[in-house]
């Protein structure tokens, strides 16, 4: 959700129980501007909140010109002082998956994971315990990266890829129509495409290279991992991810207003296949 106009846009996701207190809204309005200015960002996005047992993390992201470039992620516990999160590397993300349970709210907290390894073969096998420690700050960075990768979505044609490869917001995007917005194929994952290259040539023949450069949400596995609902009749469309419970996307059909935000515990819903 874009930093400017946050106090207006946050109302669109209020029906999912996502609310900022007036104090938080006021604080964010102030601090996000400063964050944008100090880091020379083109746009600052309010990313959401990950609630911990003792304290919560508020998260914001800044981007320069190219929207696809690695974003810088910041976290804050009081909505005023922002700290930079380390970029999530592949190894960091793999290790962070081992951490179990809720976030505590203390970035320096260390999770411990005991891994039992078998050494040797047959009867000589001995079990050896190896303890992996995971810092909460790293876990936070990985979870943000995972959520961005798995569920961050935008309406189709809201962004275009220029011939030079940069991704910018589409000047002539006028929003999806009501009937279009009811279909999952009109939303795309805002990430480097993963599934697009697997499509056959025939399927790709009719794609517009400037617009259809991202994966479409329709093919997400398992089917039904998105809950699409119209609110206010058809005046607002809300998509909630059931994979990352708490990720909510909104779009006002026929307008350029869209955005998404994550308010949750930062735990992936691994039980999803049983719950549908």
């Amino acid at each position: 959700m874009e930093g400017d106009g946050l106090h207006l846009n946050i109302d669109y996701v209020g029906s999912s129980g996502i609310i900022l207190s007036p104090e938080q809204k006021a604080a964010l309005q102030t601090s996000l501007i400063i964050l944008q200015n100090e880091n020379k960002f083109n746009t600052v996005y309010f990313w959401g909140k990950i609630s911990g047992v003792k304290d919560d993390y508020f998260l914001a992201q800044g981007v320069s010109k190219n929207e696809f470039d690695t974003r810088k992620t910041f976290y804050s516990k009081d909505c005023i002082h922002w700290g930079l999160l380390p970029p999530a590397t592949k190894s960091m993300r793999d290790v962070s998956k081992l951490a179990k349970g809720r976030f505590t709210g203390d970035p320096s907290y260390e999770y411990e994971h005991v891994e039992v390894k078998k050494i040797g073969e047959g009867d000589d096998a001995t079990e050896e315990e190896e303890t992996v420690t995971i810092k909460e700050e790293n876990r936070l960075a990985s979870v943000v990266a995972d959520i961005d990768d798995d569920v961050r979505i935008v309406p189709r044609a809201a962004y275009v890829k220029t011939p030079t490869g940069t991704v910018i917001s589409n000047r002539s995007f006028e929003g999806l129509s009501v009937s279009e917005s009811a279909k999952l194929c009109n939303y795309t994952h805002f990430r480097e495409p993963k599934l697009l290259i697997e499509k056959s040539l025939l399927e790709r023949a009719n794609l517009d290279k400037a617009i259809d450069f991202m994966d479409c949400v329709e093919g997400d596995i398992p089917r039904g991992s998105w809950s699409l609902q119209f609110e206010r009749g058809s005046g607002l469309v809300t998509l909630r991810s059931l994979l990352w419970q708490g990720y909510t996307f909104f779009h006002v059909p026929g307008s350029r207003r869209f955005g998404s935000v994550y308010f949750g515990t930062g735990e992936k819903n691994l039980d999803l296949p049983f719950m549908l």
């Binding site: 109302d11 209020g14 029906s15 129980g17 609310i19 900022l20 207190s21 007036p22 104090e23 938080q24």
Partner: peptide
């Protein structure tokens, strides 16, 4: 009161 605590729904709702 709930809004003070960042809980609840939109006011209109």
């Amino acid at each position: 009161y709930f809004e003070q605590a960042a809980i609840g729904l939109n006011r209109e709702e």
